[in-house]
Design a protein around this nucleic acid. Sequence first.
RNA 1: CGGGGUGUAGUAUACCGGUAGUACGCCUGCUUUGGGAGCAGGUAGACCGAGUUCGAUUCUCGGCACCCCGACCA
Length: 410
Amino acid sequence: MKQSQFFVKTLKEWPSDEENASTRYLLRAGFIDKNSSGVYSFLPMGLRVLEKINKVIREEMNALGASELLMPALISKKYWRATDRWDTEVLYKVKDSSGQEYGLAFTHEEVLTPILKKFISSFRDLPVSFYQIQTKFRDEPRARAGLLRTKEFVMKDLYSFHIDEKDLDLFYWKTADAYKNIFKRLGLEAMVVEAGGGGFTKEYTHEFQVLTEAGEDEIFYCESCDFAQNKEITQAKEGGKCPKCSKGKIKKENGIEVGNIFKLGTRFSDAAGLAYKDKKGQTKPVVMGSYGMGPSRIMGALAETNRNEKGLIWPKESSPFRVHLVELEGGHSQAVEVYETLNEAGIEVLYDDRENVSAGEKLTDADLLGIVWRAVASSRTLAENKIELKARNNGESSMVGLETLLKHVK
RNA sequence: CGGGGUGUAGUAUACCGGUAGUACGCCUGCUUUGGGAGCAGGUAGACCGAGUUCGAUUCUCGGCACCCCGACCA
């Protein structure tokens, strides 16, 4: 992709109306644009990151055996009435010209459960699971911190359907592993944290929290074992002994909730009359689980935890491009050669071919954008017949030939 | 929803009760090209409404928007 033909615009100044670091970086680097409080556009560069996140999620969800589908955002009032959620505070309500009322979905049990009711009737149909990556709406009383808490956001929601609690439990922990894979691949360190059941289950649910000061949850965790609980349910005290291993000390840190997994039981299947016949011909309610993850919030969490004073630093699998090829004075022929070679090798490259833009501006932009690898071609590199390759994360650079370059960035 | 703060060109900002200044951007021309280039010329602005005043971007009130703290957070 040539930068002269792809919309990459950076701001020279920090935005004046944002304090949150990830938001300031994402806005300044031109990845997102604020439309109104808690409502953002993803500009071409930002959308590429979002797509990278979605790609990893899809791969892991498919590996779990879940089928992707796409449900509507505009949901007729009757569905919300059926589950008694029409009066949920975060539900945006809209009325059409004929007076018909709708809610903009903040989650999709109301839509999926009735679909399954049409197709599921035997234990032979179970278990099944479905996921989608779709825009959700929540009437947040107060949006904050850019992508970290918004009124409209992208969510991956997964729902699973089982014959009993035991089978749900199996799938629940398989999903937890899939979640761990996703975050690891994306370059996020997410801690598994026990949290409350929100009134649907007496059991704990699990959240995936990225520990950082910008997070709005408070996490109490043990420094030596895997004990970790959200403030809302914990009895542990900061500095106290771990109630689980009774050895480690309890620490407290803020966290960004990038995912959660939830055993719903039969709450929604009961409401929809979703049941199946078991081997003996008896009718039993389907047992459900739901599992959320926020790609747009993950993007915010990545920006929050991967940056330095010069700009963003995207991890490999979430980077908008793999290589940022920067052509400086005298580097044209080399740059074209590298560009063509990378394209042929199927490596995504952003080629800064802009003319009449100073070297300083191009290099500053490259740091701000934060693509994994930076390759510079100039009269200097031409003289050595090599390319300068620099890793954005550790700043290490070296002069390499084309083949070595390919090997590195693959 | 309670409390606080802020609204000035595309962006970041300054001053001021008397026709709004700077930097960057953008446009034209020339010179530049390894860390947000130089010179010259040009472009573009007071959130909305009411009030006080001879005169309001400035003061007062109301509204709206944005940010922050809190409450809330299937």
